[in-house]
């Protein structure tokens, strides 16, 4: 049986979401250092999007 790639599993998807959240964290910190509120807000939007991945996958995409 062919072994499924980690990045195609649920744990892999959540790991990607985690990486996006961490990237967003650094983006906010960079925004604070640069004094750019817009960059910080982009970071927050990225966090919200990555957080929403799991409920969207479990309760919307997989139910269809």
């Amino acid at each position: 049986m062919e072994k499924q790639s980690f990045w195609k599993t649920r744990a892999g998807h959540l790991t990607l979401a985690f990486i996006v959240i961490m990237a967003a964290f650094f983006l906010i910190m960079a925004g604070l250092a640069m004094g750019s509120e817009a960059v910080c807000v982009v970071g927050f939007v990225l966090i919200a999007a990555a957080m929403l991945y799991s409920p969207v996958e479990v309760y919307l995409l997989k139910r269809k």
Binding site: I28, L32, C40, F44
Partner: peptide
């Protein structure tokens, strides 16, 4: 986040800063 902005008059910058503190 929604109640914070809509009813507690927070802006998105505050949400971003609190999110970074949270992380």
């Amino acid at each position: 986040a929604f109640t914070g902005v809509a009813f507690y008059k927070a802006d998105f910058f505050l949400l971003a800063v609190e999110s970074a503190k949270g992380i």
